Simulated scan of single mutants.
Amino acid sequence: MTNWKTWVSIGALSFVFGLLALGNTIVASLAVTILLGTVFAIAGAAKLWAGFSAEASQEHRLFSLLWGLVSLMIGVSFIANPVEGTVSLTIVVTGFLLASGVIRLMMAWRMRETGYFWMLLFSGAATVLLGSYIVAYFAAISLSLLGLLLGIDLLVDGMGLIGFGLFLRNRR
């Protein structure tokens, strides 16, 4: 796809949806949770179907059925209770942020003699501070964090795609 107008159009749509998500982060968070719940439910149902219909060993069949059942239950739970699902996902995202920040700090410490030290140190410290901020204000942030992250991601992606499309236009 080398048509620059297509890239600019997709970027503009992404940017507009990013603004909409930032306009109502709670609704965007709930939409992300319901979408993820739907994906989990479909994947769980497919895994259950595969477990019942596959010609696999008993051990693999049992694992497939258990994993499918867990995925289906998570998906149905997210769809039926999107608020609780959003809070659960916020806990997971916060845990990943904190773990990622700590890992980057440890990497920075091991690379303190290189030019990457300060970049990794700053990145790790900022991520740990962000995760700590979310933990400290969890009650106020938990329902809107996923929507905020989605909105920011859509805005940045939209700007990047618009820039890429304009680059393709100028390259011709």
Rank of each mutant, 00 (worst) to 15 (best):
L66A: 13
L97N: 08
A28T: 08
L65T: 10
S77K: 09
I141P: 00
G23N: 01
I134K: 01
A43R: 11
L120A: 07
L155P: 08
L149H: 07
S132F: 05
A50W: 04
V87W: 04
A12F: 01
W109A: 15
L105N: 05
T127P: 02
A56I: 13
T38M: 15
V92C: 02
M106S: 14
Y137R: 09
L105T: 04
L35K: 12
T25M: 14
T127M: 03
A136H: 03
G101Y: 03
L149D: 09
F52K: 03
G37M: 03
G11F: 02
L89G: 09
A46R: 13
L148V: 14
S100K: 07
S142W: 03
I91T: 05
F78E: 00
F96L: 13
S142R: 13
G37K: 01
L129H: 03
V16K: 06
E55V: 12
E55S: 14
I141D: 00
L145A: 04
S88H: 11
K47V: 07
I74F: 14
T94F: 00
I103F: 15
A139L: 08
V76R: 01
G160M: 12
L150E: 10
F138Q: 00
L35V: 15
R110G: 15
G124S: 01
A139R: 03
A28R: 03
L65E: 05
Y133S: 10
V135N: 00
D157W: 14
L36D: 10
L66W: 12
R169G: 09
I152W: 08
L154G: 03
A46N: 13
W118K: 13
L166K: 06
L120M: 10
L168G: 07
R169E: 14
M73T: 15
I79S: 11
A125K: 04
